[in-house]
């Protein structure tokens, strides 16, 4: 004999379990998604090298990273602050450029553009708390350098520059290619 009261109670408990699982799945999904930008980039591109995103495609022709502004030339560099603070530099000119720092679930933590700094010289240092404290001890401050403090270790730096039309191709590509991205010793 089925106990309907008990079954109803179980259905209710099932719904509570569903709600709980829903919250857990939604919260952890970005970390486990094998489709996210970090996973795609760290599997296909060398670390500490700005690599042009326009050249990177899946074997079936899809771009590695979707949803980019087609009027831009962009390069990406992936890093792990466990290796040391990250120094990013580039010299050149573009009508507009920007640097964005993402963590390993594609959250854009920080972005700066040509109007926030010397427009012809990108000079930034990505550091975490511990590294910042160390850096302040042995003071050799580069006054032109922008320090960006982050709370994560593994991340992506994306350097984008506007290419208004094809006549700018060479200049913008050279600017992007001048970009360097290296770990300073800890």
């Amino acid at each position: 004999m089925l106990n309907y009261k008990k079954i109803l109670y179980c259905l209710f408990c099932g719904l509570v379990l569903a709600a709980l699982l829903h919250v857990i799945i939604i919260l952890v999904l970005p970390n486990f998604s094998q489709n996210n930008a970090w996973y795609r980039i760290s599997k296909n591109i060398k670390p500490y090298t700005f690599t042009l995103l326009s050249n990177k495609r899946f074997p079936d022709g899809r771009p590695l990273i979707s949803g980019q502004d087609p009027l831009f030339i962009s390069a990406v560099c992936w890093f792990d602050l466990n290796d040391g603070p990250l120094k990013i530099e580039a010299k050149g000119y573009a009508p507009y450029w920007s640097l964005s720092i993402y963590d390993n679930i594609s959250t854009n933590h920080y972005s700066l553009n040509d109007r926030n700094t010397n427009p012809q010289h990108l000079n930034a240092l990505i550091i975490n708390d511990v590294q910042e404290a160390k850096l302040e001890e042995n003071q050799t401050k580069d006054t032109n350098q922008i320090s960006i403090k982050v709370t994560f270790k593994k991340g992506l730096a994306v350097f984008r520059a506007l290419r208004p039309d094809a006549t700018w191709d060479k200049q913008i590509t050279e600017f992007i290619k001048s970009g360097s991205c290296r770990a300073l010793s800890n």
Binding site: G67, S100, S111
Partner: peptide, 9 residues
């Protein structure tokens, strides 16, 4: 964002 594999501005 994670599912789409994009790097949003």
């Amino acid at each position: 964002t994670a599912i789409s594999g994009s790097l949003p501005l």
